[in-house]
Amino acid sequence: MDMFNVYEVFIQKDHGSPHVWVGSVDAGSPDDALLLARENFLRRDPAVSIWVVRQEQVHRTDYEDRDFFARETDKTYRMLTGYNKVNAEKWRKYKKNLLDLEKDFVKD
């Protein structure tokens, strides 16, 4: 009994940004979906690109499958926070010397 197909809509607001999902439209064809997405989601905001994807073509994980996203053991080795604090402390030791150096340059 479906009348139209559902197309999920992704908008790219400028060339520096990724396409972001904004919602969906009912449309008879991909061309129609693009035309309709323009007005349904861009009445105010600027954009440079629209993608539409048939809803059935979107494959997704299950919200209930929490283990899929499990991150139990220490992963700080791959994060900024795993390094910046220790590095900052070390740099502090050198800072005084650096400042002295700068002073020397200024003197010259």
Partner: peptide, 11 residues
């Protein structure tokens, strides 16, 4: 004719 078109035609 349908809601999406109503919005597009409104623009």
């Amino acid at each position: 004719p349908h809601i999406e078109e109503d919005i597009a035609f409104g623009s």
